[in-house]
Amino acid sequence: MYAIETENLTKKFDSLTAVDHINLKVNEGEIFGLLGPNGAGKTTAISILTTMKKPSSGKAFVNEKNVVDEADSVRKNIGIVFQDFSLDEELTAYENLDMHAAMYGIPREKRKERIEEVIEIVELKDRLHDLVKTFSGGMRRRLEIARGILHMPKVLFLDEPTIGLDPQTRKHIWEYIKSLQKKNKTTIILTTHYMDEADEMCGRIAIMDYGKIIAVDTSENLKNSLGGDVIILESENNEELEKELSKLKWVEKTELRNGRIYLQVKVGEKRIPQIMKCAKEREIEIESVNLHKPTLDDVFLHYTGRRIREETASGKESMRIRRKAWGRK
């Protein structure tokens, strides 16, 4: 049984295809990451899975329930932490949680108990009866996570749960989420464009770009698929050095770019001394050496030809513009 299964899931907004024939299978109890730049379609995919948007075509199942035909029973068994804040600021933390619990059908006698349990987990017990508008960004996020798990969902969706938070709070939040998954065997679907987070947190990662899923695997396998480490060199005579190095049989690939030599090798740290030796024999002076272990960013670059980081600066802006162009729906 899969916690999530999609068949050619597609969502179109006029001319833009935000989600393009996605096929996903997520196991129960897995932490599954959707990684991609802003505007890649992650949030739209999540919106469909959480019954907020209807797919243009294709099917999606959460806990084996169809998100369109059985929306109500899907909703009962999922928890969501939205990308944007979604608390009522004029209410206290307790009132927010109480209302949520009531709407998810938790009986009155159990509400208080559950609220005390979750508020303890996110360490906001002493702020329980304060108005949410007095909370900091990190506290709000924690409260939203508490709300998301209040009704013990089988699947928890986290859409960029740590965006705009300081590193310390981010780390803290990930700790909660990890312990949750261990304790309750909750399936967790998260989207992020912080690659280090995806790398550390997720069992498997799906890389998304322009609405398509480009690759799905564990972070380890994705990185290994690139074929090893990269050594970056600067020297006084790049052309000649590159020619010489490309003759070495353990060098898998060389490239000259932006005044630097890029070498693809396995176990790069062991090759650096050999490179130095080779350069010395040819009397070429090396100015700098840099060893680069592949990251998910490189994986993204490999599959899309672009870097995820370059996208993120302007990505948010262009997403807004695109969203405006879509009109209301």
């Binding site: 909703r75 939205f82 944007d84 979604s86 608390l87 600021e89």
Partner: peptide, 13 residues
């Protein structure tokens, strides 16, 4: 605008 509507729209009611 403040996001709370989403919370009510995805609730099982």
């Amino acid at each position: 605008q403040f996001g709370f509507l989403k919370e009510t729209l995805v609730a099982p009611v």
